[in-house]
Design a protein around this nucleic acid. Structure first.
Length: 822
DNA sequence: ACGTCCCGCCAGGGG
DNA sequence: CCCCTGGCGGGACGT
């Protein structure tokens, strides 16, 4: 069947010509009715009315306009009807735009108050609505479904809904944000972007197939509808989570906004993520198209709600449609803690219609059940994602990945389906969460800037185009501002597997998992991309990625039989590439066996506490942050820290404390990175090898790929020159710097990670006794971006408030992202 | 030509 | 069984 045809060709002309003589309003000539169907009824006034409104007017307070101009429009309509004859009639039919879902939605919304008084509930009768708005029922469903996803309405029964207005919006958004974070959407987005690059530079889809297949495996997930306590789906049976696609989709779409920074989401990315989520694999074109279509539907009503607006992001690829969040900022969920045990009591009420009371709803919001559940869910997903990684790495038929259907089965967010969760893991999570929260708060206190601004698009950083070579502009180097009170530098180590880690369980906070910040992991896949990016034209130096691939393939079989110790040994000798793979493998293993919580990155401070009382330092550290230590520690041992056994020994891990540290990044990128800190090296590293710091440093440099595996950076006292390999495969551009002062050595690197399209800075520093003041100066000099647009200083994070930890802001400039309104 | 997205068929399921 | 719901995708419209 075809959409009723319409001779638009001439209508344009006629319209423009006629308009002058028509009423003040640019109403398109009103048709009488040629098409047999859809006769005009008295109730079509509204419709006409809207149609009549000029675009500008429309875009404004429609509601008022509606009532005001209605009579006027009515006249217009009649007038037109009289004057037009069949032919012209037809041509003047309300244009497509005038029938848009967005407009319809406006009309719909105009019928109800944004904030209905709690006392008098307004009900929605679909029949009435359809009649009054004169639209097909079908359309109303589209609107209502989206509204439902925001809990602005909820269904009572057939044909019947309750109107909540925007009362629930804050909670809903908060919830959605949280779930979004737990779904690791940020990573998924990064992943997609990364893949985009790979495609882009993939000469000619030589291996597109391959990539395609590996792509879809992003995140099989269930169709879960995020509910709010008190706003659950009533009408019992309606809960059969079957017809919720649009709702769910809408929610997820919103999540994407809430989770990403800046809050701009392109349709393409959204579609891909949403597809990747349910239907694993099969990234077929039509499905994509359909998804996009739906997304438009949703976007339209979200736009009407003024939650988003359309923009265009311009990448080197071209202009892409996208939407920008214009809704309210979602505040941190300050009461995220009370999600205690009761893993059993996880079947909360979706039963009783909690006596509305908005307050009630609010108070209940951080419901345990849901919390627990989502955590669980996210962990499972974590595992899944790791699985996926493995698949990607071992992308050969030789290693068929067996995915138990049950594992991948739906994990609805409904509280009543929560599965029991291992107590230990849970505790760990609790600790983690709490700690993170604490730090978060301090963070927020000390630097308000850390909080993403409402209008990210206004940021200068955005307007700083990086062109093809993102990092080569010194003016946009990442910035790390040292913590005022401490001069300790930290090295940031990011591990591939950690890219997929969910580090934050208090989504209320701005903390987010470090976005796909795997440094080493990009080696194989992205070198090419990098080259392309930096080279810009011609001269596509072959990336080392073929070799790596084959290597990976060969490696596969043996990995399986290896013991972990063997692996460790090998690791220390193997090439970085090997390490990469094995590391991943071992990481996976550790995950497989236990749902250990993994941090997304590590900061490795290479100096002591700078200022005085170490006692206090360490004690505080223990008291404040150690709730997590065990967790993280074990993680590290089990493989998150890909350190060969030998090195582990050398570095004297036991002397290390692992504490979480939040690094607040600019609004463009926020991360939480636990810290591996040797709290008081001097006192503890008695038995260890010569210089732990140098070991660590070497380890890191190698790992990062800044120096070859074999090479060792000379240890103390003087680190003259670090062999910074500028052709390093995984670093498109980096600047290195070393400084020596009084036995203190500091090495700093800035490199660019194509994965998250951002710069990172590494700062390594060997132990430096009592000399707190100097380092600061150095650090600052190095890091400060001279008047750069995005030098806006801010942030840092210290969990225990001591000065033990240095803090800084990592500015990750957004690359080549231009947003243009419309 | 491509971005938008309206339109309405029709399956599934509730009452 | 009727009718409400809502997935879905053709193809029209807009630029």
């Amino acid at each position: 069947l075809k959409t009723p045809l319409k001779q638009a060709a001439t209508s344009q002309l006629i319209l423009t010509e006629r308009q002058p003589e028509c009423q003040p309003l640019t109403t398109p000539p009103k048709p009488k009715e040629t098409p047999p169907a859809d006769p005009w009824t008295p109730t079509s006034n509204l419709k006409m009315l809207i149609s009549a409104a000029s675009p500008e007017i429309r875009s404004r307070e429609q509601r008022r306009q509606l009532s005001d101009s209605s009579s006027e429009v009515l006249q217009t309509k009649h007038c037109l009807q009289e004057h037009l004859l069949g032919d012209e009639y037809e041509k003047s039919q309300p244009s497509r735009k005038e029938k848009s879902l967005g407009l319809l939605c406006h009309k719909f919304l105009a019928r109800y108050p944004d904030y209905p008084s709690p006392s008098q509930k307004s009900y929605i009768c679909l029949d009435e609505v359809t009649e009054e708005l004169h639209v097909e029922r079908r359309r109303i469903y589209d609107i209502v479904n989206v509204l439902e996803s925001l809990h602005m309405v909820s269904r009572l029964a057939r044909n019947r809904y309750v109107w909540h207005g925007r009362h629930n919006l804050p909670q809903t958004l908060q919830a959605l944000k949280k779930v979004g974070e737990e779904n690791k959407y940020i990573q998924q987005i990064q992943m997609i972007k990364k893949r985009e690059y790979e495609h882009e530079f993939d000469a000619d889809g030589e291996r597109n197939e391959e990539m395609e297949s590996s792509f879809g495996s992003s995140e099989p997930s269930e169709m879960s509808f995020v509910e709010l306590p008190g706003v659950e789906f009533r009408a019992a049976s309606v809960n059969g989570r079957k017809y919720k696609s649009l709702r769910v989709m809408s929610q997820k779409f919103v999540m994407l906004f809430l989770v990403s920074t800046p809050q701009i989401v392109s349709l393409e990315v959204a579609a891909k993520i949403l597809i990747g989520e349910d239907q694993l694999e099969d990234l077929d074109k039509s499905k994509f198209k359909t998804k996009i279509r739906r997304l438009y539907d949703i976007a339209n009503v979200l736009s009407s709600l003024k939650l988003i607006k359309k923009v265009h992001v311009t990448e080197e690829r071209g202009r892409k449609p996208a939407f920008k969040w214009t809704g309210p900022e979602v505040l941190p969920n300050t009461q995220d803690t009370k999600l205690e045990a009761t893993s059993t009591a996880c079947s909360p009420p979706l039963s009783e219609p909690i006596p509305s009371k908005e307050q009630c709803s609010k108070a209940l919001f951080p419901s345990k059940g849901k919390q627990n559940f989502t955590r669980h869910s996210s962990l499972i997903k974590l595992v899944k994602s790791i699985e996926n990684d493995r698949r990607k790495i071992q992308s050969a038929p030789t290693s068929p990945v067996k995915i138990s259907a049950s594992t991948y089965q739906s994990l609805p967010v409904f509280p009543n389906t929560i599965a029991p969760f291992p107590a230990i893991t849970k505790h760990q999570l609790e600790g983690q969460s709490k700690t993170a929260k604490e730090m978060q708060m301090k963070c927020a206190l000390s630097s308000p800037e850390a909080v993403p601004k409402p209008e990210p698009s206004q940021q200068p950083a955005l307007s700083q185009p990086f062109g093809a070579c993102p990092v080569s502009h010194s003016s946009v180097s990442p910035v790390i501002l040292p913590h005022p009170q401490s001069g300790v530098s930290y090295a940031i180590y990011l591990h591939p597997s950690q890219a997929h880690t969910v580090t934050t369980y208090s989504p209320g906070f701005m903390l987010q998992p470090l976005p796909c910040a795997n440094v080493t992991g990009i080696k194989g896949n992205n070198s090419k991309v990098l080259n392309k990016i930096t080279t810009e034209e011609g001269d596509t130096q072959r990336g080392p990625d073929e070799p790596i691939k084959s290597l990976a393939a060969e490696e596969r079989p043996e990995m399986k039989s290896e013991t972990s110790s063997q692996r460790c040994l090998k690791r220390s000798q193997a090439l970085p590439e090997n390490n990469l793979i094995k590391r991943r493998k071992s990481d996976e293993e550790s995950l497989d066996t236990s749902l250990t919580f993994f941090p997304s990155g590590y900061l490795i401070p290479l100096t002591h506490c700078t200022h005085g009382n170490k006692a206090e330092c360490s004690s505080k550290e223990k008291a404040g942050v150690c709730s997590l230590q065990h967790t993280a520690y074990s993680s590290a041992i089990t493989g998150v820290i890909p350190m060969p056994a030998s090195e582990l020994k050398t570095v004297n891990i036991p002397a290390f404390h692992i504490t979480p540290l939040n690094i607040m990044l600019s609004p463009n990128s926020i991360a939480a990175a636990p810290v591996l800190s040797n709290s008081c090296l001097s006192s503890s590293s008695t038995s260890s090898a010569p210089n732990p710091s140098s070991s660590a440093l070497n380890f890191m440099l190698q790992h990062i790929g800044l120096i070859p595996a074999g090479v060792q950076v000379p240890a103390n006292p003087v680190l003259q020159h670090v062999p910074v390999s500028s052709q390093s495969e995984n670093v498109s551009h980096n600047s290195g710097s070393t400084s020596v002062q009084e036995g203190k050595v500091k090495v700093e690197f800035i490199f660019y990670s194509p994965i998250n399209e951002s710069n990172f800075l590494f700062s390594l520093q060997t132990s430096a006794p009592k000399e707190p003041q100097e380092p600061q100066a150095v650090t600052e000099n190095f890091f400060r971006t001279p008047g750069g647009p995005n030098t806006e200083p801010s942030l840092c994070a210290n969990s225990d408030g001591t000065q033990r930890t240095s803090q800084g802001t990592l500015y990750i400039p957004q690359r080549k992202l231009e947003v243009s309104e419309d």
